[in-house]
């Protein structure tokens, strides 16, 4: 379970997160929606322990992130807004390093590498250095890195950007499998169809706070919209933006 409790954060006096509260249950996929600059990446970085909240706390698996950073990082798999590849390492070396950094060794390490290789169909890339990989290949390797130690919590920042149809399908399938295994998954995205297809819960974020949350159906009902996109525009940008959007469509 991931829980964010009254978290606030500001940069150079500008508030980015304002008393943020939400929680994500195990075995659920939660989408975090928000306009650019809404504070999504800051929120995800606070959960991973990269940034410290000015006030409030984040919890992963019941442990407070700022107090138990190492333990938290063993439970987390993260794909950030950049893939974080090392271009002079082969895929095998890259994944082996991160699996070892997570404490895997010997047979466990070999098993983890083999599993992720098969699961994400990485055989053809395995002994190639990551320099020159396509966006889809880069994202696949990055996802493999986040999954190699079988984390109980997965955080993904716009995971389908730049992916072709097959890679996006593979990613969706992987996330659904992980959900069925009990992994708590939090991802941010701008692609509404993907959010509808994958997520159990949607969090809509605007101006550093959660303005609404629920299943896509609940959000549509509450906002009086027919689609999640319209609901998102109304909730994230306000009523005026919603009307403007409707006028443009008409």
């Amino acid at each position: 379970m991931i829980r964010v409790n009254s978290v606030s954060k500001q940069f150079s006096g500008t508030p980015v997160l304002k008393n943020l509260n939400f929680s994500i249950a195990d075995g659920q996929i939660t989408a975090l929606l928000g306009a650019n600059g809404a504070g999504k990446t800051t929120c995800l970085r606070i959960i991973t322990g990269l940034l410290k909240a000015d006030s409030g706390h984040a919890y992963v698996g019941g442990l407070e992130v700022s107090k138990y950073p190492k333990e938290i990082r063993r439970q987390l798999g993260v794909v950030g807004d950049r893939e974080g590849l090392y271009e002079r390492l082969t895929v095998a070396e890259y994944l082996s390093f991160f699996a070892s950094a997570q404490g895997l060794a010997g047979d466990k390490l070999e098993f983890a590498l083999q599993s992720v290789r098969e699961e994400l169909e990485l055989s053809s890339l395995w002994n190639r250095r990551t320099k020159g990989f396509s966006q889809g290949e880069r994202m696949k390797v990055s996802l493999a890195r986040a999954l190699v130690h079988r984390p109980s919590h997965l955080i993904l920042d716009e995971p389908t950007r730049g992916l072709d149809v097959l890679a996006a399908r593979l990613l969706r399938r992987t996330l659904l499998n992980l959900r069925s295994e009990g992994t708590a998954i939090l991802f941010s995205s701008h692609i509404m169809a993907e959010v509808v297809e994958l997520s159990d819960t949607v969090l809509i974020m605007a101006n550093g706070t959660i303005v609404d949350s629920g299943t896509p159906g609940e959000l549509n009902t509450r906002s009086g919209s027919n689609s999640l996109e319209d609901s998102f525009v109304k909730l994230a940008y306000g009523q005026r933006a919603g009307k403007r959007q409707q006028g443009e469509v008409a």
């Binding site: 990269l50 993260v78 950094a101």
Partner: peptide, 13 residues
Amino acid sequence: ERMSIETLLQQPL
């Protein structure tokens, strides 16, 4: 600059 430092800092090291 490549932001791989972020990935590294997310490890239990």
